[in-house]
Design a protein around this nucleic acid. Structure first.
Lengths: 229, 229
DNA sequence: CTACTTAGCGTAAAAATGACACGAATATAA
DNA sequence: TTATATTCGTGTCATTTTTACGCTAAGTAG
């Protein structure tokens, strides 16, 4: 038991994990096994341990609840509306993450046997707590950030075609781009390595594969280059 | 006394308040009256009450410690390194604020009689806790955001000249801009109202005064217009 | 009235953007 | 083997935007 002179909130982390399939941007949700909001869907998350950095807690919870590790993750926002959790005062530090969905097609049904499922961002079920607000914040952040930082690559496989890349931007930003102009623009940046390799097993002309050149990006960024789609 | 089954962190807010004088970007610091870090400087802040939204807490602390209210403020980041505060486990939700410095030339020496002072961001004293890291995060955020959102106006008086506006951007971004190009660009946006009024009491040709057109910005933003300097 | 300081303005070259369509490559089905 | 279906990969031109650049006008102080 722990006793304090003044009341203290609980602090949790919640993780919004985005993944991309060919048609949709998806997020991972977990079905709650217990009240409150039993049976409804929520983002994975849990308590921050007393001597744990919130970044670590977010990664730990994600690993525990979904088996996912080693992804791009960044802090999103901290939610502190007083009655956001009916069980008491809970402040949640939200994170969002981008994963290469191909690696995680079947999310593990988690250690504590909850159901985890990917949902299209365009077709979310009703969410527990204030998770709809958290989602809105995350999606807005992603839409804003993807255009000015090369984080979109985190959603694609290591090797990707220019069409896949364009498709990813179209799905996230929500409007279509001109193919020729897109290619000109992205290639001109010099951030893609042409792997001199082609797709396998597609039922049509195979496209060339590229890879994001992280080293080059760091170099250019240091010189003041600004990524922009 | 309050007793819990598991240990809980304290949660605080810290506020980085930026103000602009003609030569410098400044931040408001408070000299600590007690250990730890007695005598060194820190950002104003304090505990979040148990039923208080962190946004409210940030505004309240700022009002209490500096007398400042009614400013632009937004959440910055949440800092949770386990030993960031030697007194125990303290998680801090940091906010940054922009004020019209002219209104607050002399910060109130605060309710609890601490010394508050404006420091140039280029000449900060040693800061308490992890406040240097918090400052770095805030400054970086400001530098990034000022170019894509019209928040810079929050640092200027209601009525300002184009030179003052340009000067603000030069100070924050840290490089000089071409006068003619800057004017063309900003005027073309149609976000400035020409007040048909001139500066008073300057020892040289007086410049025209302008005002930021918030209504117009909201209208344009809704139509997909993107502010950019 | 002179000296000093800042305001206010336009043009031309270069670069980026936006609109637009078709032949090449490859797999599958007939 | 031939036809069909699908995606790949590419260039030009008009328009817009960005960049570079320097002088006169206006007003105050001495």
């Amino acid at each position: 038991m722990y006793t304090y002179e003044y009341p203290r909130p609980s602090v949790t982390v919640d993780c919004i994990i985005f993944g991309l399939d060919n048609e949709d941007l998806k997020v991972l949700l977990i079905q709650r096994g217990q009240p409150p909001f039993q049976g409804s869907w929520a983002f994975p998350g849990g308590f921050v341990n007393i001597d744990e950095h919130a970044d670590i807690a977010a990664k730990r919870e994600l690993q525990e609840e979904t088996g996912i590790s080693d992804m791009y993750m960044e802090q999103l926002y901290t939610f502190s509306t007083p009655n956001r959790d009916p069980r008491g005062r809970v402040i949640s530090i939200a994170y969002y993450a981008l994963v290469k969905l191909s690696n995680f097609a079947k999310p593990q049904a988690a250690s504590d046997a909850q159901r985890a499922e990917w949902f299209s961002v365009n077709d979310l079920p009703e969410l527990a707590f204030d998770h709809q607000e958290i989602f809105d914040t995350a999606f807005q952040r992603l839409q804003g950030k993807v255009r000015y930082q090369p984080i979109g690559f985190e959603l694609l496989p290591e090797k990707f075609t220019l069409s896949q890349l364009q498709n990813m931007y179209e799905i996230i930003i929500g409007k279509s781009l001109d193919k020729r102009n897109f290619r000109k623009k992205i290639l001109r940046m010099g951030l893609l390595i042409d792997l001199e390799e082609r797709q396998q097993g597609v039922p049509h002309r195979a496209a060339k594969l590229f890879k994001f050149d992280k080293i080059m990006y760091q170099k250019l960024e240091a010189e003041g280059f600004a990524f922009e789609i």
